[in-house]
């Protein structure tokens, strides 16, 4: 019996190849260009370790903020119908569309001394320009749509009937959320945090406007590239990719389906 060749499927595969190559080839080239000695040397550099740690820390902080404030918003968007909902949805998606330096400029103009909010923050001792606070603010801004849209889809996938049954059994809306909805949406929430963290770690355009220092890894890579060239920026890039990969694999591992999905 001969092998059936499905022309359509092969055509799809062939047409997919250029995009896969576009992602894989440059990254492979970059990862394998630095020697082990280059990588080890860059790891001895406190600036490299510090910026990667700062990038991870600020991205995770942004994901945590999205978790705390974005989860209720995602639930509202998934479950409730209200006038102007499509406007709110458009607002949530705005950060995806706006050029990222513009986001940095917008945050700065709000947090500057010329704006009441900026003056209020200053009075409270909160500085945005050139601080971790500013970095976390812009990372939350750029990562938030990825978190909310992912978690909203997760909530939508949970049948409302489960919540109805829970309430008919005596649980309040709040108890229903924490005993039924949240545990069932947990994997979507983790996926949302992964998406948000990934987007935040890679952010450069908005961060460089708000805070060149303290330096994050993308800013350091940019600086090394402009000051010393390609060769010096590559080891930092490889470490950033490696650490991010470990983080995301770990997050996915902890949010994998449990036995109840059998």
């Amino acid at each position: 019996m001969g092998i059936r060749i499905n022309t359509f499927s092969w055509s799809l595969a062939l047409l997919s190849l250029p995009l896969i190559a576009l992602i894989v080839l440059p990254l492979t080239k970059m990862v394998f260009t630095p020697t082990l000695a280059d990588l080890w040397e860059s790891l001895q550099d406190p600036l490299v370790v510090g910026t990667i740690g700062r990038s991870l820390g600020t991205a995770l902080a942004a994901a945590l903020i999205c978790f705390i404030f974005g989860t209720p918003l995602a639930y509202l968007m998934a479950r409730k119908h209200f006038p102007g909902k499509s406007v709110v949805e458009a607002v949530i998606d705005l950060p995806i569309m706006i050029p990222h330096p513009v986001i940095g400029i917008a945050i700065l103009s709000l947090a500057g001394r010329n704006h009441p909010i900026g003056r209020f923050l200053a009075d409270m001792g909160i500085e945005v320009m050139g601080t971790l606070t500013g970095i976390i603010a812009v990372l939350t801004f750029v990562g938030m749509p990825f978190y909310i849209n992912t978690v909203k889809a997760g909530f939508e996938a949970i049948p409302e009937r489960l919540e109805n049954v829970s309430r008919s059994l005596g649980a309040s809306m709040c108890a229903t959320f924490f005993r039924i909805t949240f545990p069932l949406a947990w994997r979507s929430i983790m996926l949302g945090m992964i998406m948000c963290t990934a987007r935040a770690i890679s952010e450069f355009g908005a961060v460089i406007i708000v805070a060149y220092h303290p330096m994050t890894a993308p800013v350091l890579i940019y600086e090394r590239f402009t000051a010393y060239g390609l060769k010096y920026s590559q080891p930092v890039s490889v470490w950033l990719i490696g650490v991010s990969l470990v983080l995301f694999v770990g997050m996915r591992f902890f949010s994998r389906p449990g036995r109840e999905a059998a």
């Binding site: 009937r161 489960l162 049954v165 309430r167 008919s168 059994l169 649980a171 039924i180």
Partner: peptide, 16 residues
């Protein structure tokens, strides 16, 4: 709903 004292069984059972 939680104070009405009515039980429901749906067609798709809606088990948690």
């Amino acid at each position: 709903p939680e104070k009405r004292g009515l039980g429901i069984v749906y067609q798709d059972y809606a088990l948690f």
